[in-house]
Every structure is written in C-alpha cells, then in structure tokens.
C-alpha cells in the first residue's frame, strides 16, 4: 500500500531521461539507467512510473500498446490510481522471468528482445512477496483485481484471484453476499430448495 508514496519521486528522475534521450518516433523505446529499455506509465491521478519494458510486457494490454508504438511518451492509464499502479509495477518487477507468464512471452518474442528473460521457477522470495502483496483489505484487493483484469496480466491475475478465492472459500453464503455487496434475489423458497438439494455443502 505505502509503496505508492515512492511513485512520484521516482517519476521525477525519469522525466529527465526521456528529455536527455531526445528521441524521435522511429527510435526504439527509451533507455533507462544501465541501458535497459524503459517506458513510462501514467496513472489517472497523474503519477508517473518508470517501468522496465520487459516487465511491462507481463501485461497483454501494455504489450499491445507498445507493439502499436504507443510506448514513446508516458502511457496514460486513466482507470488506475497511483497507489494501485505503484503496487502493480512492483509486482511486475518481482515477477521478472516468472513462468506463469514468461512462456506466453516467449511465443510472441520478436528479434530476440526477451532472450535474457528465461523463465524461472517462482522462488520462495517471490511467493513471500505475493502473499504480502495481497495482504490488503477488501477494497484494495478489488482495485488490484480490476487492474489485473484491465491490464490482462496473468501473474497479477493469478495472485489476486487466488487471494479472492481464499477469502471466499470458507465463508457462509451470507458472508459472501456481505463481502461482495451482492443482493440475494432468491425467494426464501427458492433458496431453501437449493440448500436442500445440496445439503452436504451447506453444513
């Protein structure tokens, strides 16, 4: 949650970099420190984040945009807030080489762009990070779920959906409705019939 605070300061550094690069539309995506390719993502509340190009490719949505040549200037993501985007960017960085999505990336590889991106098994450290990543309240988890869905990022989707499923798993029907803010549209008779039909599941 609090990693969103670091977003603005890191974005200040990178604002200078594209200026220094003096790029034209035909040039490859801009280079960050150490010569890595980076792009800039801009949240709905105008926070900017520098992301390693290869990390951003974990999102199919971003990948399509980059391949369409939209990766030159800051890429606006109006439906993500700064704090959410900060978390997402951090997860992309930690999931670098994660086989959960890297296989797919290999298939679409062009010109050996991802050759240093060999899939790795998720380490205990990554798994620990994932657990910590979703140790948030319900509203924050839903924000992340929506972000994962919009970005079409398999790794992010796995982590957040698993967390949502874990939360629901042992809830009663009433608790599930409460958690998701759902309205019961069954008549009492209909609901009783359903419960009776699968009595074993409702004990």
């Amino acid at each position: 949650m609090s990693s969103g605070d670091s977003g603005p300061s890191s974005s200040k550094q990178l604002v200078q970099q594209p200026a220094a690069a003096g790029r034209s539309p035909n040039q490859p995506p801009l280079l960050g420190a150490g010569g890595r390719k980076v792009i800039v993502l801009k949240s709905g509340d105008e926070e900017e984040f520098e992301v390693d190009l290869l990390d951003a490719m974990q999102s199919r949505t971003l990948r399509r945009a980059i391949e369409d040549g939209c990766g030159d200037g800051p890429m606006p993501l109006p439906n993500l807030t700064g704090p959410v985007l900060a978390k997402v960017v951090e997860l992309f960085r930690r999931h670098r080489g994660d086989p959960r999505w890297a296989d797919e990336l290999q298939e679409t590889e062009k010109e050996g762009m991802f050759k240093d991106y060999a899939p790795q098994k998720p380490t205990a450290e990554v798994k620990g990070f994932d657990r910590e990543f979703v140790s948030v309240d319900r509203d924050a988890l839903f924000d992340l779920l929506r972000a994962a869905n919009f970005l079409e990022a398999p790794g992010l989707l796995d982590v957040t959906c698993d967390a949502a499923a874990d939360a629901v798993m042992n809830m009663t029907v009433e608790e599930v409705r409460e958690y998701f803010g759902l309205v019961n549209d069954y008549t009492p008779e209909e609901e009783a019939a359903l419960r009776k039909q699968h009595e074993w599941a409702f004990q």
Partner: peptide, 17 residues
Amino acid sequence: ILSLLPLRSIVRAGAVC
C-alpha cells in the same frame, strides 16, 4: 475467481444470487 474454489464452495456460490 469462482473456478478456483473447491467444489463445496462452488456449490455454495450458486446460492449467493
């Protein structure tokens, strides 16, 4: 999300709405 649940929770999910 529902597809990740164990069977019993899926059956219960059907009674939510």
